[in-house]
Write a protein that binds this DNA or RNA. Sequence first.
DNA 1: ACTTTAAAACCAACTATTTGGTTGGTTTTA
DNA 2: TAAAACCAACCAAATAGTTGGTTTTAAAGT
Lengths: 193, 193
Amino acid sequence: MPIQKPSKSEQTRQRILAAATAEFATYGEAGSRIDSIAKTAKANKSLIYDYFGSKKQLFQAVLERHLSDVYQDVHFDPADLTGYATMLFDIAMDRPNLMRLVMWNGLEQNRAWPLDETSSFATQVTKIREAQAAGGINKEYPPDFLLTLIITLASAWTAANPLGTSIVPDVAERRLSFRAALAKAVSQLSQPD
Amino acid sequence: MPIQKPSKSEQTRQRILAAATAEFATYGEAGSRIDSIAKTAKANKSLIYDYFGSKKQLFQAVLERHLSDVYQDVHFDPADLTGYATMLFDIAMDRPNLMRLVMWNGLEQNRAWPLDETSSFATQVTKIREAQAAGGINKEYPPDFLLTLIITLASAWTAANPLGTSIVPDVAERRLSFRAALAKAVSQLSQPD
DNA sequence: ACTTTAAAACCAACTATTTGGTTGGTTTTA
DNA sequence: TAAAACCAACCAAATAGTTGGTTTTAAAGT
C-alpha cells in the first residue's frame, strides 16, 4: 500500500485549514470568525479547538503551511537576482491568499515570522554584499536596500498591495508584460556600472 | 478675532480622532475597540456615535483626515519623478500611522479610496505616458508599472510594509542613505536611454 | 465471522465575556 | 433658558472557547 488514503480526521483537518485560509485571507485574524470557519469547513467548532488550540494558533498554522509550501520553491542566487525577482513575482501572483496572510500577519504584529525567514533574509543580504564586493552586483545600493526592493516589487501587484491593485486593476491580463518589466528593472538596477 | 479658539466640542472631536488614529493604526478596524478609543480620548463612548456615527464611519473619518493633510503636500511632476519619489518617501517615513491606516483600509477592502485618488492615479499615469511619448521618460516600462513602482518603493521601508521593516529593522537611522538610494534607483529607471 | 471495547472523531448546546451601539438624563455654555 | 456637550448605565447580539456526551473506527478477543 504505497499511497495512504488520508484518514477521516486528516480530511477534516484539511477542510478546516482550507476554510481558515479563505476566512483569514479575507478578513485577517481579528476580523475572522471561528463560527464562520467551522461552518465553511462543515466541521464542528470544537474540532477546531481540538486540532489547533486557539484562533491565534490556527492563524499561525495556516500561515506556516502556506509559507512552507512556498519555501521549497524558492532558491536564492545572488548571481541571478532577475530570476529571483521573477520567481517571487510568479509565486506572489499565483498565491494571493498567501500574500494577504503575510500582510495581515505583518500588520497585526503577530511576533516575528514563523519559520525563520528573518535569518534567511540576513543570509540573502550577506550574499548580495559579497556579490557586490566581487563586482557581480552594482555597488551603489546597500544590499538590504536591493533585497527589499526586489521582494517588495515582486509582490507590488498582488492583492496584498492595495496601491498596486488600485493603480493597475487589470494586472492579471497584463501579467507577462509586468513580469518582463520587473525583470528589466531589477536587471538594470543590479547590473554593475 | 482672527484666530478662533477651538470650541470645547471641537477639542473633544480632536481627542477622539487622535485616539482613534492610534487605535486603528495599531489594530485595524476589526481589531480596534470603541471602548478603548473612548477611554484613551477621555470622552464618553456615546460622543463617538454623536460625532461620527459608527465605527466604520469613524475609521473613514480618521483616514480621510490624515490623507487630506498629506494631499496638500503632494505635487506630481512627471518631469521630476525622482523628486516625487523622495517626497513620498519623506511623507511615508514621517507618517507611519497614515501608512498603516492606508494598508488596513486596503486589506479590509473597505470600498475604494476615500477622496478620489483613483482618478488622481489615472491622471498621473497619463502624464507619465505623455512624458514617455515626448522622450522625457524611459519608454521601456509601462507608465502604470512605473507609477506603482515609485509609490510602492517610496513606502517600502515604512511600518506599513512588514517585509521592508523585517529586512531592514534599522531604517530610521539609515534614512538618508535609503532616501538617496531610492532617488538613484528611480532616476536610473526613468531616465530615457 | 462476530462480538467486545476503547480510543478517536465528532457534535449540539452552553457559558462567560466582550462588543457596537442606545437611552435618558445631568451639566455646561452662551 | 434653551441648546449644546456630556455621561453612567444599559442592551441585544456576537464571540472565543468549553462541556458532556454520541457516533465511528478499528483492532483485539472469541
